[in-house]
Computed example of a mutant assay.
Amino acid sequence: LNVTMDLSLNEMLGFTEEEVVKILEEVGIEEKENLINNLRELYDGYKFNKNARTSVYNPDMVLYFLAQYKNTGGYPEYLIDDNVKTDYGRLNRLTMNEENKALLERIIKEEGIVAEIVTKFSFDRMYDEEYFISLLFYMGLLTIKDYRYNILELGIPNYVIKTMYWEYFGRKLKEENNIKYEMLEIAKAIWEMAFEGKIKNFVKFISEKVLKVLSNRDTIKFDEKYIKIILFSYLTMSNIYKPISEKETEGGYIDIYLEKDIRMPDVKYEWLIELKYVKKSDEKYIEEIIEKGKEQLKRYRESMQFKDKQNLKKALVVFIGKGDYKIFEE
């Protein structure tokens, strides 16, 4: 009997925020408000029924975090225990067919999907689209986000699960395209962004070590969202930044906001990045695209959230074709 989606059991499957606050009090952690805001973003977001009003936190992840926090007096180096981390081998097996692989890439790009959840499984249909999506739901990699017009909208529950997807995407890309690089090279490039305010070497790394070596099949998929996921998969190799996609401001949605990671409070520079992709065949429109991108960045920087923020860099990054690029930064 599958009772996962039983409404009466929704809050049994995780910690409510009220319960997390009580745990913080019981273990004697002060500054609860700031900590709970971070925990909410990292581990909250799960709903198991379309009519559930309360989301719940992943209990394993919360307890792991608090044990580390209590022992060290600070945030853990790794935000998720390896024991509860998704088995990448299992994801590889589930995406052995091209349909599931393409579907997973779509979910990562869009951060969700519209689908129905299967409650009973048959081995004869294990590679059907709805079965694959349902497995991601039962594995905790998707959750119920909304129910509108009699349609179920599934989404990625929280930031930690997003990083797991980005890590998987980066691993898969590296394996399939034989991408080779030195970890020191990418670490140094991200460090330069954080402490010197220079983005050039990071973009150069992505262009030369990743984009230019991708297969023609991968380059067919090129668009801004696809390249953004590539950027995120490398940015999260370091604990320096927390990449945020489509952050809302009154001036529009920022392609990439690089916020300093909670584990790296000494980071000097944060970034607003507007990302553009131009096919070689559309290169004649590049000046128009550049002007539009600069105007978008200007609006984001002048928004209420950022207009008084110190040490906030902004950059327009335009990728052209398979690996050429232009950077405009301030």
Score class of each variant (00 low, 15 high):
residue 205 F to G: 07
residue 140 G to K: 03
residue 314 K to G: 00
residue 326 K to E: 14
residue 218 D to C: 10
residue 74 G to W: 02
residue 249 T to M: 07
residue 212 K to C: 10
residue 192 E to T: 05
residue 241 Y to T: 02
residue 68 Q to L: 06
residue 275 L to G: 06
residue 76 P to C: 07
residue 218 D to E: 15
residue 27 V to R: 14
residue 86 T to N: 08
residue 24 L to R: 12
residue 213 V to F: 05
residue 5 M to E: 13
residue 257 Y to N: 04
residue 163 T to C: 10
residue 9 L to Y: 13
residue 53 R to D: 10
residue 185 E to D: 15
residue 240 I to V: 15
residue 264 M to L: 02
residue 66 L to C: 08
residue 153 E to V: 08
residue 103 L to G: 04
residue 177 N to T: 13
residue 186 I to F: 07
residue 184 L to N: 14
residue 264 M to E: 15
residue 162 K to M: 06
residue 156 I to F: 02
residue 287 E to M: 10
residue 3 V to A: 11
residue 324 D to K: 14
residue 201 N to P: 04
residue 235 L to C: 10
residue 321 G to K: 09
residue 202 F to G: 02
residue 59 P to A: 00
residue 119 T to Y: 02
residue 22 K to G: 01
residue 88 Y to L: 13
residue 227 I to S: 06
residue 10 N to Y: 01
residue 113 I to R: 03
residue 240 I to L: 14
residue 31 E to R: 14
residue 123 F to E: 11
residue 118 V to S: 07
residue 255 D to S: 11
residue 157 P to T: 03
residue 252 G to D: 08
residue 177 N to P: 11
residue 209 K to L: 04
residue 286 I to E: 11
residue 165 Y to W: 09
residue 273 I to F: 07
residue 159 Y to M: 04
residue 293 G to F: 01
residue 92 N to S: 09
residue 2 N to C: 03
residue 263 R to N: 02
residue 47 K to M: 03
residue 73 G to D: 03
residue 253 Y to F: 15
residue 161 I to S: 09
residue 321 G to L: 07
residue 187 A to F: 13
residue 16 T to C: 08
residue 103 L to N: 04
residue 95 T to A: 07
residue 314 K to A: 01
residue 242 K to D: 12
residue 107 I to M: 11
residue 36 I to L: 15
residue 219 T to W: 11
residue 307 K to T: 12
residue 14 G to M: 10
residue 277 Y to F: 15
residue 270 E to L: 12
residue 114 V to F: 09
residue 18 E to P: 00
residue 322 K to C: 00
residue 96 M to F: 09
residue 223 D to I: 11
residue 131 Y to W: 02
residue 142 L to S: 04
residue 230 I to T: 05
residue 35 L to E: 05
residue 17 E to D: 05
residue 282 D to E: 15
residue 128 D to V: 01
residue 171 R to F: 03
residue 159 Y to L: 13
residue 242 K to Q: 14
residue 148 R to G: 00
residue 96 M to N: 08
residue 138 Y to V: 05
residue 165 Y to T: 07
residue 104 L to D: 07
residue 240 I to A: 08
residue 329 E to V: 03
residue 323 G to R: 08
residue 325 Y to P: 09
residue 297 L to F: 04
residue 327 I to Q: 10
residue 152 L to F: 02
residue 241 Y to F: 15
residue 198 K to Q: 13
residue 215 S to K: 08
residue 179 I to A: 06
residue 209 K to C: 01
residue 132 F to H: 09
residue 264 M to N: 12
residue 31 E to H: 13
residue 130 E to C: 02
residue 72 T to Q: 08
residue 234 Y to Q: 06
residue 116 E to P: 00
residue 18 E to S: 15
residue 112 G to T: 09
residue 34 N to L: 13
residue 291 E to G: 12
residue 297 L to V: 09
residue 265 P to Q: 10
residue 202 F to K: 05
residue 159 Y to T: 14
residue 59 P to G: 01
residue 182 E to V: 05
residue 267 V to D: 08
residue 88 Y to E: 10
residue 287 E to D: 15
residue 329 E to N: 10
residue 109 K to V: 07
residue 94 L to V: 00
